[in-house]
Computed example of a mutant assay.
Amino acid sequence: MGIWRGPQGIEVEAIVASGGPCLLVTRRVGGRRVLVAYCMSIREVGELVDLAELVPA
């Protein structure tokens, strides 16, 4: 699994959920992680965040 971080507290984490692999997109707000979306593809993540700004954690 991997975690990538972006500006404004965005975190994208590769996870395995009950339906299989997916990408968990969260945002850090006041020290807490807030769910943004569960994405099934990197394309879906790209609709939410600028992929070029993500860096490995």
Rank of each mutant, 00 (worst) to 15 (best):
G6Q: 07
G30C: 06
M40Q: 15
A17V: 10
R43G: 14
A52K: 10
A17K: 08
V29M: 12
C22L: 14
L35Y: 01
P21R: 13
V49P: 04
T26A: 05
V34Y: 01
P21G: 10
V45K: 04
V55R: 15
R27D: 02
Q8R: 12
G9R: 08
R28F: 03
A14K: 12
Q8P: 00
I42T: 12
G46T: 09
L24W: 03
V29T: 10
A14H: 13
V36R: 03
E13D: 05
G31S: 10
M1I: 08
L54T: 07
R33P: 00
R43V: 15
A14G: 09
G6F: 01
I10L: 09
R28C: 08
S41W: 03
P56Q: 12
M40S: 15
E47T: 09
E11H: 08
V36H: 00
I42R: 13
R43N: 12
R43C: 09
E44L: 02
V12T: 06
G30K: 04
L23Y: 12
G20C: 11
L24M: 10
D50K: 09
S41E: 11
L51R: 05
G19F: 11
A57Y: 07
V29G: 06
V34A: 07
G9H: 03
L54R: 09
A57K: 09
E11G: 03
R33H: 10
V16Q: 11
V25G: 00
I3W: 02
D50F: 02
I42N: 07
L48T: 05
G31N: 07
R27M: 04
V55N: 03
G30L: 03
E53S: 14
Q8V: 06
V45D: 05
G2Y: 14
W4H: 05
E44F: 00
R28H: 08
V45F: 00
S41P: 09
L23F: 10
L54W: 01
L24Y: 02
V49A: 03
E44I: 00
S41T: 15
C39V: 04
S41D: 11
V55Y: 07
Y38W: 09
V49Y: 00
Y38R: 12
A17S: 14
A52P: 00
R32E: 12
P7D: 10
G46E: 08
T26Y: 00
S18M: 12
Q8T: 08
L23M: 08
R27G: 06
A52N: 03
G20I: 10
V49M: 02
V45S: 06
V36D: 00
L23W: 07
V12R: 04
R27Q: 14
A17M: 08
G2T: 09
D50C: 06
I10S: 01
V25K: 01
R33Q: 12
G46P: 05
L35C: 02
T26L: 06
G6V: 06
I15R: 12
G2Q: 11
S18R: 15
R5H: 06
G30P: 07
I10P: 02
